[in-house]
Design a protein around this nucleic acid. Sequence first.
DNA 1: ATAAAAACCGACCGATCATTCGGTTGGCTA
DNA 2: TAGCCAACCGAATGATCGGTCGGTTTTTAT
Lengths: 201, 201
Amino acid sequence: MSKRNAILETATRLFSRNGFKQTSMSELSRMTGAAGGTIFHHFKNKEDLFLNILKDVQDTILSAFRQHKETARYENGLEMVEGVVTFYLHLTGVLEDQFLLLHRHYPYQMAETNTVCRSYLESVYNCLLDIFEEGIFIGIEDGSVKVESPRNTAMVLFAMVDGVVRLNTYNLYHAGSLYHDLMASCRKILANENQRRLINE
Amino acid sequence: MSKRNAILETATRLFSRNGFKQTSMSELSRMTGAAGGTIFHHFKNKEDLFLNILKDVQDTILSAFRQHKETARYENGLEMVEGVVTFYLHLTGVLEDQFLLLHRHYPYQMAETNTVCRSYLESVYNCLLDIFEEGIFIGIEDGSVKVESPRNTAMVLFAMVDGVVRLNTYNLYHAGSLYHDLMASCRKILANENQRRLINE
DNA sequence: ATAAAAACCGACCGATCATTCGGTTGGCTA
DNA sequence: TAGCCAACCGAATGATCGGTCGGTTTTTAT
């Protein structure tokens, strides 16, 4: 692997697990085997390195959801949202470091002054919320979903799913066994009870 | 105000808004008017200062919920949980810095090696989950709530409410208008539909 | 084969960091 | 009034930090 990729990969792990400030360039140099000067040959400074990583995170997550949207097929809107939630939980496991980075405060602090950083974060969150919202819209049309405000419900839903992921990373509780209850809560928030009653009767 | 209290107060703000590592003792010294040596007279090192602050956070939050529990009265369990959620949202506004500190990664990282830190965090989360769970239990008894697992539902509920608070602090969206939809989602997750149908009929 | 370009190296730099320490102050007690 | 102790001060310290720079090696293009 090229030194540049090794630096990006290791820095992603260090930044997400230990934080931006807590990660030193000398530590990164030692772990990658790249000399100090090599890192600054590829990235003009520490912040630029961080931005490159954030861009990779954005690309990875966006393309993962794009692909999921193309391949997955669902019976109705409610099942689509459920499928997206399941896929999100799956992704947070596969791309653990990337999502951990998004759960840190540093990117959002940087986004307050750095518009590039802000655009990366916004496009990730817009992508996630849009795909939730789309499922809700479809569900309203086909009658499987009934909510007051699709966008706001998408945000609450996302907050819930992401909140459970965070609970897991904090290591205070074993939140891994929450999958069943999380999905049940999703259905209760979204499901059109009238339709369910019609089916049951 | 004593220098010690000024240090604690300012450090709480700096640690929560800028992070542990990003906060320098010289900055703290400058902002409080206390000499460098004075800080280390009251706290044996930076980590000890942080632990003192976390203890204050724990005391403040625990006593706030204890008082809320003693004064608030509700018709049934469902309304109690709704009241707790509303009070939680209220607290995150009043004690902004304290909750921001709990939303950072540093305390949880420190908790992995420092048992004192871990016990502070555990008692805060146990308190919050217990009060959610209690409302659910009461609601199951009086028929206003119907869920599969009270403890797990309490965790999902907490993850949702706390997730919305986080969305707010990230400043990417104006999540302040989410209150109505958040409460609606709470009710949908908890409410015993059979009872509601009985009342309607 | 050769020259230009890109990747890489590691010693070095100034700034900043948490922490120390010898000394001063001011209020309380005996 | 004498003596004590906690509160307070700020210059000094050694370690570590992000970043630079002149030079060497490797890759690429002709």
